[in-house]
């Protein structure tokens, strides 16, 4: 076994283990943290495939930002496990059926028929000094310019939609206007009164 193979199987084993833990742990915070571990191991596998830009961006975006917000929300939930598991037996057949259909679909798409060992040639190691970031950037901004921009616009629409859904006048909340606060002068707040000393 070469070193690369060893590293691949190590990361792959951790990835599968972490992914299993994500769906089996009762505690949602533990699940979220195992998902972080899963991201880390997939980033490791991508590094092995010489896609260092994607690997680091996976950690930067998913671990550094998305999962932080996930944890943020999950930590504040007080999940009642009893009610959560109450309907387990009732919904089991439907759930199992959906899972089976999904598994078959996934197998048909990414199974050996399309992605078998004979279909994909073994990757050739890039020469030293190969810059994955530069490569991706030049392709992204020339060949895939329009899809890239369309994706950006879709994301922008998503942001605006999310803000539009949550922005509403809430007269009952107390709001401070910081610029007004900053502009306050001493004369607005403070009045010095001349008064005689009491005797």
């Amino acid at each position: 076994m070469t070193f690369e193979k060893f590293v691949f199987y190590l990361f792959a084993a951790i990835l599968v283990f972490a992914a299993t833990m994500v769906i089996t742990r009762r505690n949602p915070v533990h699940s979220a943290l195992f998902l972080v571990l899963a991201f880390f191991s997939s980033a490791g596998i991508w590094l092995l495939a010489e896609a260092e830009f994607l690997a680091i961006v996976l950690i930067l975006v998913y671990v550094g930002a998305v999962m932080v917000l996930f944890l943020f929300v999950v930590m504040m939930l007080d999940i009642d496990l009893a009610t959560l598991r109450a309907g387990f037996i009732r919904y089991m057949p439907v759930g199992a059926l959906v899972a089976l259909v999904m598994a078959v679909e996934i197998f048909m798409v990414v199974g050996p028929a399309n992605f078998g060992l004979d279909k994909v040639p073994a990757p050739v190691a890039q020469p030293a000094g190969y810059n994955n970031t530069e490569e991706l950037g030049s392709v992204l901004y020339t060949v895939y310019m329009y899809p890239f921009e369309v994706a950006a616009v879709i994301l922008l629409v998503g942001i605006i939609a999310a803000i539009g859904l949550t922005m509403r006048r809430r007269p009952e909340t107390k709001y401070q206007n910081p610029s007004l606060q900053v502009r306050v002068k001493k004369a607005d707040r403070l009045r010095v009164i001349k008064m005689d000393a009491e005797d």
Binding site: F53, I56, V57, L60, V63, G64, N131, N132, T133
Partner: peptide, 11 residues
Amino acid sequence: DLNAGLLYILA
């Protein structure tokens, strides 16, 4: 001497 050193630090 990483090519993506800045990204690595940010991550």
